[in-house]
Design a protein around this nucleic acid. Structure first.
Lengths: 233, 233
DNA sequence: ACGGATTTATGAAGCTTTTATGACACCGAA
DNA sequence: TTCGGTGTCATAAAAGCTTCATAAATCCGT
């Protein structure tokens, strides 16, 4: 998915130019022409980066900055401040509220785009949470959550670990012994058949109505995470 | 009440001059001659502004800055850095730790006083600085207050910190150990089960009648701040 | 194609682990 | 001392795990 950049600027011509250049770079763009709108828009479509004019109607850039920092979703969004003046105090204040970069008008469009790219690149890893995906299934290690097709799925601890194990090695078939060893741990002894039960529960939780079964049973061998039930590749 | 300005400076003659000029302007003045003292004094008499020498015995100005930013009471106090050098790197480093302004020795007394006045003036309205929100919950770090849906909620110190910790990293699941470490501190030893009790108290305080539970229990993993218990996205 | 032998899927029951709760004792500050 | 605030326990209440018995499905040799 394309990263979204929000432009907060009241000067229409500048907005047009910014939008043109950013979209050419492959970013999605949202805009707001005053502070209040900025907060609203950010709420509806959380941006991955913000270009924020210092002087705005209805709410100063500095205040917008604070508002953005308050919400968890936009807390870590990189912000580039635009200002007409180049006074030191402004710069300081901007940095204080949490702007990540700062440009003085007039500025060169290529440079701005470059900075946006830099900020996005830098911000990525901080947001990069450990999560695995397989098809329409997502397993989030931080939130300890699994979803399929956008819908959250509840799993018990063991099913969660089992799915994680399979998602880390999709396509590979594991015997019950291997699964017991990898998921339950090497020191635990339980009946190998117990695996069957957990596989069943995993299937039941994952396979809602129409969706296909992602777990493949391989007779006499074990199970694997596999999109196509048995069909040829 | 007169605004208090703390002077952190080891050169006695300069301190005298500063004190004289500031008091003439109507400010109360506290002083510290080294970094450690600065932290102590700030603790006893939270200043409204700080004049901080870059070079200090026992603790660098930069470190003092950090210490001040760490405590909620002094987190947002405007700080003016004084330095003998005027190198850009120092400047940048100073700003990075959160200094609000920057003056190079030697400086004119009237200018310093003017800057102090400016900082105090603009620090006033920005009282509403540190606050976190999650859904209809607001945690105000300045007022040390929590409200849900506009209604104030009373929390004990530990519950407050626990909530703050969770709100700073919404969605992420934390084990009891992690919470003990992050909220209680790395050196404190209490039963991991104690976390349960505080979670319960937090829930009881937060969840009035109709409102939904924002704390998710993840069996065998821990707790997280999370709007939807298990529902769809 | 048929029947027995294997192997897997399922549903339910009992048991274990983990969490929620209420009560209580302790401590430091007002 | 009286009050919040905290940490611990004992106990209740969930939630999840394992096993077992049985039904289905799949294989294989004839």
């Amino acid at each position: 998915m394309k990263p979204t950049v929000m432009i907060v600027e009241d000067e229409a011509s500048l907005v047009t130019m910014l939008r043109y250049n950013l979209e050419k770079e492959g970013y999605a763009v949202t805009e707001a022409s005053d502070g209040e709108e900025a907060v609203t828009v950010a709420d509806e479509t959380p941006p991955d980066a913000v270009i924020l004019d210092w002087m705005l109607p209805r709410m100063s850039g500095i205040e917008v900055c604070r508002q953005l920092r308050r919400k968890p979703e936009t807390r870590h969004v990189p912000i580039i401040m635009l200002t007409a003046r180049s006074e030191e105090t402004d710069k300081v204040r901007g940095l204080n509220v949490g702007a990540d970069d700062y440009m003085t008008k007039p500025f060169s469009m290529p440079e701005l785009v470059a900075r946006v790219r830099a900020l996005l690149r830098r911000a990525k890893p901080s947001q990069a949470k450990g999560q695995l995906t397989f098809g329409d299934i997502t397993l989030d290690l931080d939130a300890h959550r699994v979803s399929r097709g956008g819908r959250y799925v509840h799993l018990g601890p063991t099913e969660f670990r089992l799915l994680q194990y399979l998602m880390e090695r999709p396509g590979t078939v594991f015997s019950r012994e291997e699964l017991l060893n990898g998921v339950w741990g090497p020191d635990i002894y339980v009946e190998p058949r117990t695996v069957d039960v957990h596989i069943r529960r995993l299937r039941k939780a994952l396979n809602t109505d129409d969706s296909i079964d992602v777990i493949r049973t391989v007779r006499a061998a074990g199970y694997s995470l596999d999109a196509s039930g048995d069909a040829a590749a």
